[in-house]
């Protein structure tokens, strides 16, 4: 499995997203330009210029027409995927940390960071079919959790919003009323900042990665803790294979310590775990900084990782991978 090295960003990667067909890969980085690549050969298709700060996340609509990006420049932008044209800009008073389209792409959930006097918040925006009809109004604003909310996604049937962040608690909110429905248990839950959250293709479960050196698998409906994956380093990124029962964790030592230790100490590998048995299967080395982003191609035959080192590495699995038995 020889990875394709995609060098296009000048700063650390922050997020990776495949479109539904699995032919396009969107990457966000701390440089200000989200980039789209051919998911097959890693060829760069184009960039989306307009942000004025680090871009933290993106999401792409089901029909691969629209791209939504959230940035530290306190805006969330809608783009035309094909032309790269900006369609709309939502302005906030603090950096936007995460964005996620709902089922049907009519709603988007956006989280904003605590900034100056402002606390963090979860915003729900209606996304108009026609960009000219788009308004900036929020359908719902949820406030409450302490510290940054690193990720918020839609629950089953858009009825709930699942969020997690610095306070290490995973929460489920009612997406209509904004009421808190469920909270993860302090005892069994994460002990440190939850850095990433990624849901299964069918939305039945999701996995969270945390700086407490573990990743956990939860039931999207009941918020029951199903599995825990223990690792040796802080987890910055998690993803699940849509094809096999595999979970991939990426992370590594804090970037500020990287220069003081050997590259082997940092553990910048993407680690594969058996989803059910919670056992480590293998690892993919290559990055020379912590892994910040991971994404699986929807066909389950390739995955990509983005690191603090500014590279995206695109891995197409060898046939052996599909025969791994433990």
């Amino acid at each position: 499995m020889r990875p394709i090295l995609m060098k296009g960003h000048e700063r650390p990667l922050t997020f990776l997203k495949y479109n539904r067909d699995g032919d396009l890969l969107f990457s966000c980085a701390k440089d200000h330009t989200p980039t789209v690549w051919f998911a097959d050969n890693g060829e760069r298709l184009g960039t989306y210029r307009g942000h004025n700060g680090a871009v933290w996340t993106c999401d792409v609509s089901r029909d691969s027409m629209r791209l939504i990006t959230g940035s530290a420049d306190q805006t969330v932008k809608l783009w035309n995927v094909e032309t790269g044209a900006q369609l709309f800009t939502f302005n906030f008073d603090s950096p936007a940390r995460s964005v996620d389209f709902s089922v049907g792409d009519k709603l988007a959930v956006i989280t904003t960071d605590p900034f100056m006097e402002l606390t963090s918040a979860i915003h729900v925006k209606r996304i108009a079919r026609d960009p000219s009809q788009q308004t900036a109004e929020s359908a719902l604003v949820i406030k409450g959790p302490q510290g940054r909310i690193n990720r918020a996604i839609w629950g089953p049937l858009n009825r709930t919003i699942i969020s997690a962040g610095e306070d290490a608690i995973v929460r489920i909110w009612d997406s209509e009323t904004g009421k808190l429905l469920k909270e993860s248990d302090k005892e069994t839950g994460h002990k440190k900042t939850v850095t990433s959250l990624s849901k299964a293709v069918d939305g039945s479960h999701f996995v969270t990665g945390s700086l407490d050196k573990s990743a956990k698998l939860w039931d999207s409906r009941t918020l029951t803790l199903i599995k825990t994956y223990l690792t040796e380093r802080p987890v910055n990124a998690v993803t699940m294979s849509p094809l096999l029962d595999h979970v991939v964790l990426g992370g590594g030592q804090d970037a500020s310590h990287v220069t003081t230790t050997d590259h082997r100490a940092g553990k910048f590998e993407a680690k594969f775990y058996d989803k059910i048995l919670q056992e480590e299967i293998g690892g993919v080395k290559g990055h020379f900084g912590p892994i910040n982003a991971l994404a699986f191609n929807p066909d389950g035959k390739s995955f990509s990782s983005g690191g603090e080192d500014g590279y995206v590495r695109l891995h197409h699995f060898d046939p052996d991978y599909f025969n791994v038995k433990i």
Partner: peptide, 14 residues
């Protein structure tokens, strides 16, 4: 569950 919600999901996706 998922099967039961199929119609609902379809509605959400127009």
């Amino acid at each position: 569950w998922h099967e039961e919600e199929k119609a609902e999901r379809q509605r959400l996706r127009d």
